[in-house]
Design a binder for these strands. Structure first.
Lengths: 124, 124
DNA sequence: CCTTGACTTGGAGTGCACTCGAAGGGTGAA
DNA sequence: TTCACCCTTCGAGTGCACTCCAAGTCAAGG
């Protein structure tokens, strides 16, 4: 099978068909997704690879508009790799520090859990 | 100074005065914040400590409604520590796995950055 | 006294990212 | 062919978490 229906693509990517259409409409794809003779979307392997990347960017907190900007650069073709790199690096750095901060908060919450466990243990 | 104005509390907690009022209105505080004779809010040290905790919960992704539920339990007083613990532990576990997933995505993005840095014309 | 600026309230508005509904056409098995 | 279920578009609706506004109160400085 070289191309997938929207339902199959949704299944494989973990997104809903609604979201897949929304992403395309919103300029997050590299171009219009292929259509069957009857007008139904057919997702190629490249489409899925791209969706996987933007899913990574999204699920690490990159806003839709930045993903759209990045997609625009890729769509424009060779010559803007520096700009793409800047977006990716900026995002990586933000994710990294957010990760560190979350880890700090997690430790504090864990500490609080320890306190409660001591109390509950005492009561029980 | 044993109590702070809303502006001072905002400054110390990193939230805005708007958000502080919103949290109180929405049942996230342990009770009504004290008022001065003229009706202005006065934040105590305990208030700040509590705000710090709920800020940790929020910034690790706990929804407002869960924070509200937790606040309700604390407000209800002793006897429900098990329930509080369950909320905290459930949250910790979710944060932990989300942290791990984000770290995975980060590595994949980093890998892509390596590709861009290594050569021109990377496939999107 | 007058002005400045921080505070109060209830309620409305914003931005983001979906998420869904309506109305209708396409598809594959029996 | 009939049936169930897929797909299409456009546009509206949802949920979350703020964020802001209008209109008014209050304290301190000049």
């Amino acid at each position: 099978m070289t191309s997938l229906t929207i339902a199959e693509a949704a299944e494989k990517t973990g997104l809903t068909a609604h979201t897949l259409r929304y992403y395309e409409r919103d300029g997050l794809m590299l171009g219009a997704v292929d259509r069957s003779a009857s007008g139904h979307r057919r997702y190629s392997a490249q489409d899925l690879t791209w969706i996987q990347l933007i899913t990574r960017l999204r699920s690490t907190g990159m806003p839709i508009r930045d993903v759209r900007r990045y997609a625009g650069l890729v769509r424009a073709g060779a010559g803007n790799e520096g700009e793409r790199l800047a977006i990716l690096k900026g995002h990586r750095d933000r994710v990294q520090s957010q990760l560190a901060e979350t880890a700090r908060h997690l430790r504090a919450i864990d500490h609080k859990i320890g306190i409660y466990e001591g109390q509950v243990g005492a009561v029980a």
